[in-house]
């Protein structure tokens, strides 16, 4: 039996509004095994962002089971969730979300600050990561001094630095042009194929989703269907 990084059973999420309880996720079943590259697609309002927040331990489900790396996250308190995010998950956002006052190196090393790693090791590991995403010369720059594509590479380096079990990328190419988007997606699939990093990608663009191995379509809070991508089909052939 393959090791599941993510194991979700009958996951529900309701939001309470003035109009009453609004169900956003209505029973999701999903398993992601180690080394998988999965894209989650859906129209806006389909619940994919909510699912993403729950997967990233930023939000808690209303019902059902969510196990991340074998741990039921509903059993964790706020503090343990923070540690869990720190060690298990690497986030990549549409808007890059780098801290503007910090140098690139310090941005990349920030998760290690919260992991309690000593300074020399932090900087050393951040340099290696920066090298890996191809920005070795930019360590002392500030985020606003480099391009959007470069900023996203920095964000990827930051997501990877604490060797997470899972990378969560929420519309990572949403703010980038086509050419840069291709470069970033190539970096993702390289990380996946060469280093076996588990990636969950949220997007609404089909051509971006095609970089993954399989696509899960979400519609109205439920999983519509799951299909292998063209790339996978080609590879199988």
């Amino acid at each position: 039996m393959t090791h599941f990084v993510i194991n979700i059973k009958n996951l529900t999420k309701n939001y309470e509004t003035v109009a009453g309880v609004v169900p956003v996720l209505k029973g999701i079943d999903l398993s992601v095994s180690s080394g998988e590259f999965l894209a989650i697609m859906g129209a806006s309002g389909s619940g994919k962002s909510t699912l993403m927040n729950i997967l990233g331990c930023l939000d808690t489900p209303s019902g059902g089971i969510y196990e991340l790396n074998g741990t039921d996250i509903q059993s964790l308190d706020k503090n343990s969730l923070a540690s869990f995010r720190n060690s298990m998950i690497g986030f990549i956002f549409q808007g890059f979300n780098l801290l503007p006052r910090m140098s690139i190196i310090d941005n990349i090393a920030l998760p290690l600050v919260y992991a309690g790693i000593p300074k020399e090791e932090r900087i050393e590991r951040a340099r290696i990561m920066l090298e890996k995403v191809g920005l070795g010369l930019y360590g002392s720059y500030r985020p606003n001094q480099i391009s959007g594509g470069q900023q996203q590479r920095v964000a990827i380096a930051r997501a990877l630095i604490n060797r997470p079990k899972l990378i969560l990328a929420d519309e990572p190419t949403g703010n980038l042009d086509t050419k840069t988007s291709e470069e970033i997606m190539t970096l993702f699939s390289d990380l996946n194929t060469q280093e076996g990093i588990t990636i969950i990608l949220i997007t609404h663009e089909n051509n971006i989703a095609q970089y993954a191995q399989s696509i899960v379509h979400i519609h109205d809070g439920k999983i519509d269907f799951r299909e292998p991508t063209n790339r996978m089909e080609e590879r199988i052939k």
Binding site: N79, A82, L99, L110, P111, Y114, R158
Partner: peptide
């Protein structure tokens, strides 16, 4: 937003 980013990448409340 900065606080959100820090929390997302693993800052504890006490941090």
């Amino acid at each position: 937003r900065e606080i959100g980013i820090r929390v997302a990448i693993g800052a504890h409340e006490r941090d």
